[in-house]
Amino acid sequence: MAAITVTDLKKSYGDIKAVDGVSFDVEEKEVFGILGPNGAGKTTTLEIIETLRDDDSGEITVAGLDVRRDSRSIKEVIGVQLQTTVFFDKLTVRETIELFASFYNNRVKAESLLELAGLEERSNAMLNELSGGQHKRVSIALALVNDPKIVFLDEPTTGLDPQARRSVWDIVTRLREQEKTVVVTTHYIEEAEYLCDRVAVMDHGHIIATGTPDELIDRYSPESHITFTLTPTVDESVVRAITGVRGSRPYNGGYEVSTLTPQETLVGIFAAAYENGAVADQVSMKRATLEDVFLKITGRSLRE
């Protein structure tokens, strides 16, 4: 049974269609990512599922419960980290966790959450004394106080430095080990690729593709890119004739070629260099990323 089913979800603010007919399922125990640029409708979608906002139309079930009718029961079994919550300044980390735990019937011991979030040493620090990364970890810990079946993380690493981001990823990895269903929104490609079993790519209120990161890459951007230099330089027509090359362009004094068969093309590059009395150097190969997928589908870069 799917942990979450969303069918034809719509939500408008005035003339703006924030979410325009979104459908997807989240399987139990998977880490499901919603990837898209700012303003794509990720947060709105998430907040409707979390019972925080009302939808205009659509069907949503969470843990088999209807979002509109059973919101109270849903709240007991989900854990939510909102994008921008700042908590009570004058409570300590432990007190904040215990306070939020008191809202639920099912409660986890503060100790285990402090451990999970790597906050043991800061457990008696006031919230306003924490760094951005620590604060984020508190808000994730608070999403787990009721030992939820389904955890929602809305842009959990936005604004964090790489190290702090890494520690958030470690928490999500632990959640996967605990067999929780996790729904995470992000506009970071690497995050989606690193964390998510499946990803829904969202843009302008629509989900434009869903699948595992590999599936998406294979489907939309299967080519690998190889860059290299040839000394002395060799004419581009020679490069274009190399096995498997589908496209080429001059790049940094050398060339960049795209190919569906990277291994054969690599061999072809060295062969062509040899045949033309040149030396191939600075060879590097890059497989496509979800960024390329997004670019391919929307014609825009995700980072804009």
Partner: peptide, 13 residues
């Protein structure tokens, strides 16, 4: 403003 009310709203309290 801080979003604490929203966070409380997603809890069963």
């Amino acid at each position: 403003e801080k979003g604490i009310l929203r966070r409380i709203k997603v809890s069963p309290l």
